[in-house]
Simulated assay, not measured.
Amino acid sequence: MKRGSAWGAAFLLLAWQSAGCSGQGTADGKPVQKDGGKPPVAVEASRATTADLTDGISVVGSLAAKFQSDAKSEIGGSIVEVYVTEWVRVKKGDPLARVDTREAEAILKRAEASVEMAKAGLLEAQAATNRAEREYERAQKLKEAGLVTRQNLDDALTQREAAAARVAAAKAQIAAADEDVRQAKTRISKAVIRAPFDGIVAERFVNVGEVVGEMQKVVFRVVDPRLLDLTVSVPSGEMGAVRVGQALTFSTDAIPGKVFAGKVRFINPVVSEADRSVKVVAEVRNVPEELKGGMFVKGRIVTGQRPGVLLAPRTALLTWDVAAKKGDLLVVEKDLAHRRTVRTGSVSGDLVEIASGLAKGETVITRGGFNVKDGDRVNITRIDGGQ
């Protein structure tokens, strides 16, 4: 009996030890989590806020000088002088080049000689007129005395009228010759190619000795860089919001960190068949002349302002269908993340308008959300830029 009791006590002790080893716990004696869940995910968050929102349309385009002229020679001939080179500033009327005028000067001399000949012809016609007047007066007196016939008097009258006609013809010849002189002088004056306005000679296409035709070859390209046109394309679906006079802000990679401004001046009434967009031209004042024609720019047409618009950071959106204006984000409620679909609207910098699906003051995850699933516990380490 004693041996049986000893064996029974040993068995109970062994069973108790086995139960102790298989109990919940760790090697250091600390208990493990009873629910077996994963630890909270560290995230950064921001609260949805309201602010005044500036609506706009994002655009891209290129700059060009508003005033640009391709200067041509108005007369044909050989270039005998070039007064300017490229990239120099000129004033309106400054000479750029001169065409050979020897042929035009010869034409002018002939025209001046024709004027002198016409004046001499006028003097001759006036003398003949005076003589015809005297003959007519004499014939009248002789007719009164009965010494000439009616036919003789009529002949004298005809001679007087013909002489007066020759005077008128001589005056007309003088006027025509004078006009030839003026035209010849004008042609000679056109031999000097001049700047059409204040600006800069962007390109020169001729050298001394080259032959140019009348209004054929471009010899200089002059631009005024103080006023530029910015041409952009606006999708046809958004063209209803564009109005003449609206502001357009833009930047270019050529001048980083600086924002420029212009105003919408023209809206093309025709939609492009190629991409269903509308061309819009904005006028940009370029003083000082930092911008250059041909620059590619990215900008935004300001179409209006709205107060009290609910905004959330772009980084809060896990998915975002811009065309459908909807996206998903994670909202934190009592340390739990809940995935929610929201309606989006306009974009303002790093903020997105939330049209529906979110309330002011609600907390949304902005960083670390890729590790979070719907219903996960989170630990917010930073909110609204603060600890």
Results as ranks from 00 to 15, higher is better:
residue 193 I to T: 03
residue 90 V to S: 00
residue 116 E to R: 14
residue 196 P to L: 05
residue 242 V to G: 06
residue 7 W to D: 15
residue 80 V to G: 10
residue 355 A to D: 06
residue 65 A to C: 14
residue 345 G to I: 01
residue 142 L to D: 05
residue 186 T to Q: 15
residue 248 L to Q: 00
residue 62 S to N: 13
residue 343 R to T: 08
residue 377 R to L: 06
residue 60 V to R: 12
residue 15 A to M: 09
residue 304 G to T: 02
residue 182 R to W: 08
residue 232 V to K: 01
residue 40 P to K: 02
residue 281 V to Y: 01
residue 30 K to F: 11
residue 73 S to F: 02
residue 258 K to V: 07
residue 6 A to N: 15
residue 386 G to Q: 14
residue 92 K to G: 15
residue 359 A to L: 15
residue 83 Y to G: 03
residue 135 E to L: 08
residue 279 K to H: 07
residue 178 D to A: 14
residue 271 V to G: 02
residue 119 K to G: 07
residue 104 A to R: 06
residue 2 K to M: 11
residue 146 G to H: 09
residue 20 G to W: 12
residue 378 V to L: 00
residue 129 T to C: 13
residue 186 T to E: 15
residue 305 Q to W: 10
residue 89 R to F: 11
residue 30 K to M: 13
residue 278 V to W: 00
residue 242 V to E: 04
residue 222 V to I: 09
residue 309 V to Y: 01
residue 87 W to F: 12
residue 24 Q to D: 11
residue 350 D to G: 14
residue 169 A to N: 06
residue 70 D to Q: 12
residue 12 L to V: 14
residue 18 S to Q: 12
residue 162 A to D: 06
residue 368 G to I: 02
residue 356 S to N: 09
residue 173 Q to P: 08
residue 109 K to E: 10
residue 209 G to L: 01
residue 275 D to E: 07
